[in-house]
Design a protein around this nucleic acid. Sequence first.
RNA 1: CGGGGAUUGGCGCAGUUGGCUAGCGCGCGCGGUUUGGGACCGCGAGGUCGAAGGUUCGAGUCCUUUAUCCCCGACCA
Length: 373
Amino acid sequence: MSSKKLLPPKTGDLSDWYTSVIALADLADYGPAKGTMIIRPYGYAIWERVVSELDAEIKLKGVDNAYFPLFIPMSLLQKEADHVEGFAPELAVVTHGGGEELEEKLVVRPTSETIMYQSYSKWVQSWRDLPILINQWNNVVRWEKRTMPFLRTSEFLWQEGHTAHATHSEAEEMQMWGIKTYAKIYRDFFAMDGYEGYKSKSERFAGADNTLTYESLMPSGKALQACTSHDLGQNFSRPFDISFQDKEGVMQNVWQTSWGFSTRSIGGLVLAHGDDNGLRLPPKLAPIQVIIVPVKPQDSGLVEYCKKLYDALNGQVRVKIDMRDDESFGYRLNKWEVKGVPLIFKIGNKEAEAGQVTAKRRFDGIDVAIDAS
RNA sequence: CGGGGAUUGGCGCAGUUGGCUAGCGCGCGCGGUUUGGGACCGCGAGGUCGAAGGUUCGAGUCCUUUAUCCCCGACCA
């Protein structure tokens, strides 16, 4: 009957609370190399939910997925001056391969503009080749000085969309679509409101004419840059020579955009919705939406009742039964609370006899009796 | 990059002015009693103390070198 709290209060040291929740909810571990993170199955399941929703939106817009290499030759990265200057301090560079020093150093991609646009320059000849609408889901590396799980890690997962258009207005429309889509995902799936707007000149993406951002307020009082969408103008199409003949036969450079949404969003989710009892997940992103917890997993009658509930729900919602009989009832309840499961079904003889369930709502902590029929 | 802290079983820690077989809690395994909000008893497995070198009869404790991680600030999805 111990009442000791394993989790420090959210209102205390927020950073302490944050890292504790990440660990206790089995979202992630620290990797052995500085600033790296191991995303555990439960944390990855949340990301998979995000990927599946955002990917559907991207495809709906007519953007195709592709994959470009992890390694970028140094010379390629250096083609756009602002871009290389912006990223130089945080590059991971490969100097050796196969036991020998490389003729040309390779950069582990911090973002893929350069390596993708080299291809774009080959693929675009005519106005008929436009627009190019390509997205990729991948990992990128930025050697950050200061790191924090999900919010800022040396390596992170994201999607990066890269488009090329015949006109600036078309590119602007695309950039706007990017931030609107992200905002929609944040509002509808993360249940996180935020502010859409332009970044100041000093904060905009290295190589962009302007950057649209969606920023959400965190409990620390700081805004989290949740995702960005850039108007690249012709800053890359000129050095990379991405040009085409328009309908009048005039050579022109393309207008480009890029936009990204990363695993940082999971960190924002934890910060925005977590409480003193741990994580609270919005149902649309929760890997498990309903957890059925029998008071006595040894009681075969009770288990049978739970399985009937499970069968009725399975397929409609993401549901699991917690059958561990070596953990006390209270321990199991707290375990799922920390993990942020939206609904916890507490099932004992009382419920089985009445044909009901007692559902604990994670978001407000209230017990509700529901008829099981 | 600047400032702090740390490194001892899986995790969190203790280990005095150097001294016996390196401890404790949690977790883990086995057995039993329990089970409506983080249960309990018994038995048990598991570490050579971040790394390298040195001082000493003797080093987790002292010295030198070194590696790594975490936290706090300025910069970034």
